[in-house]
């Protein structure tokens, strides 16, 4: 590196003394530099993120349909949300989806991570094989995932119904039946996110020193006992992290349900983000859509605060 190339300059001698011969720039460079380093980032961030954040907040207090017309309506958009059956339907759907990712996906991911790390898979090669195999869906875009599964879920010739037929069971209109549409999307979500979540658990498990488990088994603890009383408590920070991520991202779910069912049949899979999209960009009810956006933000903020509080109480010991 070019830095070490001048041995004649002893570190004790500081040419950086404020001499009158040096230019204004070289005297102030060090003080100005940090602002110049952060400036480009904040220009873009301010223009395309912070400004819209504020502007959207203001917009949520206006009735603004189409382009141009704007009337201040106070909090009435928010009041309307609380009485809007489609919004409430979307809220329920999104909550169901979120609960599924917290109570089905996350435990499944933990089980997967535990299994891959346990004595059941002794060879490191097999461990990394499983890691990579379950990670594959993360390489795939939601569009491709949706196209693949639309075919698999197809009522007439889809793989899933062929498997059912093989078992002598009747065909199911997976994505077209109000009873099955949401469970189908949950299945796709589990398929997609199982690998990455188990990787979080794996890295959490790796942080637990092997000696602790050994000590427990020397003390006569059985495997289930070790799991409940040693591993699980030590894994709390990771569990909290995975669950919070699941809640925040599930509440923002858009791509998969939009591409698989477009919210149907009869709003059975309408999510909050999708309702925002429809409100803002099909019906051009901008003010109301902004309010939906802020209701989503509120959920994320509450969950984050909750996480922060819980983490201090419970996560670090």
């Amino acid at each position: 590196m070019s830095v070490q190339q001048s041995p004649e300059t002893a570190p004790a001698i500081r040419p950086r003394t404020r001499g009158g011969t040096r230019s204004w720039w070289s005297r102030h460079e060090h003080d100005i530099a940090p602002y110049l380093f952060i400036l480009p980032f904040f220009l873009i961030y301010g223009t395309f993120f912070l400004y819209p954040v504020i502007s959207s907040f203001i917009l949520s207090f206006y009735k603004s349909v189409g382009i141009g017309s704007r009337t201040f309506v106070g909090a009435s958009n928010y009041v309307q949300l609380a009485n809007d059956p489609r919004y409430l339907k979307a809220l329920v759907n999104t909550t169901v989806y979120t609960l599924a990712s917290v109570f089905i996906l996350s435990p499944l991911a933990l089980a997967l991570a535990m299994t891959v790390r346990s004595f059941l898979v002794p060879s490191p090669n097999m461990q990394s094989f499983y890691r990579i195999a379950f990670f594959l869906p993360n390489l795939t875009s939601f569009v491709v995932i949706a196209l693949m599964f639309a075919l698999i879920f197809n009522k007439d010739f889809g793989l899933l119904n062929q498997a059912l037929a093989g078992l002598g069971l009747p065909k199911i209109g997976w994505l077209r039946d109000t009873r099955f549409a949401m469970p189908s999307i949950v299945m796709v979500a589990i398929w997609t996110f199982l690998g990455i979540n188990s990787l979080y658990f794996l890295s959490g498990l790796q942080a637990i020193p092997e000696e602790i488990n050994e000590a427990a088994s020397i003390d006569g603890a059985t495997r289930p006992q070790t799991f409940w009383h040693v591993t699980l408590p030590l894994l709390r920070p990771t569990i909290l992290f995975v669950v919070v991520q699941a809640v925040i991202f599930s509440y923002q779910s858009f791509d998969l349900p939009y591409l698989l069912t477009a919210g149907g049949p009869s709003d059975a899979t309408l999510t909050l983000a999708m309702y925002l999209y429809q409100t803002g960009f099909s019906r051009f009810n901008m003010g109301y859509a902004a309010a939906i956006g802020y209701s989503l933000a509120m959920i994320a903020i509450i969950v984050s605060i909750f996480q922060f509080g819980l983490f201090r109480l419970w996560g670090e010991e």
């Binding site: 819209p52 923002q252 956006g293």
Partner: peptide, 21 residues
Amino acid sequence: LLLIATLTLPIYVILIPLYSM
């Protein structure tokens, strides 16, 4: 702190003004 505070905000918050922009 501003960066931390805005980190969890979903993109859906800014979608409409950003689109108008």
